[in-house]
Simulated scan of single mutants.
Amino acid sequence: MAMTPGTLITVAPTGAELAKSDFPHLPTTLDELVETATSCERAGASMIHLHIRDADHRPTLDASYLKAAVQALREQTSLVIQLSTGGSVHDPLDQRLTVLDAEPDACSLTCGTTNFGDDVFLNPYGFMSDLYVQAQEREVVPEFELFDLGHVASLARLIDAHGLPFGGKVHVDFVTGVPGGMPGTPAALLAGVAMLPTEVTSWAATGIGRSHLPIVATALAAGGHLRVGMEDNVVFARGVPVEHNSQLVERAATLAELMQRPAMSTDAARAVLGVKDRRRA
């Protein structure tokens, strides 16, 4: 796996865990998501990882909300649109599969069950396998979310069982620093990278909370890509809260530029990921 000259920056603006009442800058309405997406694209993001909220700002997998978000972002940005199939840790497995009905460019595919704070994020092998095959059939590119080293082995098992994903590329994201998952340390991240199957063509890393900057630095130095955003980190610096997702994207893009791996364009990201171009001419 050769080092990619540029850096694919994904913004994860909302997530399903934080309450709007506690974090008023969290983008939860469609208008807020569109403004966030356009600002983050200007700042250097080339993909957006979406969790959707309903009219009461609660996490939802309702098809109408998902489709409206995909359509609006596709019309007003050129970002690669990736929908979360994780939803909330409380969402049932069968409902999580329906996310693909919204026709995103990409989707998340978490490669195993993990403790998630006081909860359990359930991803049994049968669900993973069904999602993998449905994504192939619908020509949606999965991003394989790896919360632990065992998830790397599960990824290899999926590839062995079903062949390559749609587009022929295999892109993974190490999600580090979740209580119950792999720690957000350089040593843990590099151990995971060393275990990746040969089919993997690109990888990114996410550092939750205070592990954010060490993971960004390690990923850039090791040839990986980045995911940043308020889903993962709401503190910009000690005592300084994040007020807009673009702050995190701008910092990531600045660090990538300093490492001579500048932020990728959305077209370059599409080529790296092998996504189908669903944008209308």
Score class of each variant (00 low, 15 high):
R210K: 09
Y125S: 12
G181L: 01
H90N: 12
P262Q: 09
Q95Y: 12
A204C: 13
M1T: 07
S154I: 04
S154Q: 09
E250W: 14
L146S: 01
G229A: 08
A16D: 05
S39T: 06
A281F: 10
E231G: 13
I9L: 08
H90I: 11
P183H: 15
E143W: 06
L66D: 02
R279G: 02
L226A: 14
H212A: 05
L220W: 07
K20S: 10
I159N: 01
P92N: 12
L158S: 00
A153Q: 06
S265W: 03
G207A: 07
F236I: 11
D56G: 09
M1V: 12
S46K: 00
L248N: 08
T201V: 09
T14M: 05
G229I: 02
S129W: 10
I9C: 02
R279H: 04
T110Y: 05
D54Y: 02
A16H: 03
A68Q: 13
H57R: 14
A156K: 09
T113Q: 05
S84M: 01
V133D: 03
S78V: 01
E17R: 14
L258S: 12
T29G: 04
T113I: 07
V272T: 06
P13V: 03
F166T: 06
D31K: 06
A72L: 02
D173P: 04
G224M: 12
Q134S: 08
A72G: 10
T36F: 00
V172L: 04
L122P: 15
D130V: 08
R270G: 10
A188E: 13
F116N: 09
R74L: 08
L109F: 06
R270D: 02
G163S: 03
K169D: 01
E17C: 12
A281P: 15
M182R: 07
S246T: 01
V152C: 00
L97T: 15
A102H: 01
V235L: 03
M264V: 06
A37S: 11
E231P: 11
V70W: 00
L258E: 03
I215G: 05
N233F: 02
A156I: 13
L220Y: 02
D130E: 13
M128K: 05
V70N: 08
A161W: 08
G274I: 08
V234F: 03
A63R: 15
L33V: 04
Q260N: 13
S78R: 11
L226C: 12
T77R: 07
G239N: 14
Y125W: 15
R261K: 15
D118M: 04
T114I: 12
F147H: 00
A205W: 00
S154K: 07
A219C: 05
D118L: 05
V34H: 04
I9M: 02
D160H: 15
D22V: 06
V200M: 12
V34I: 08
L155Y: 04
M128N: 10
R138H: 02
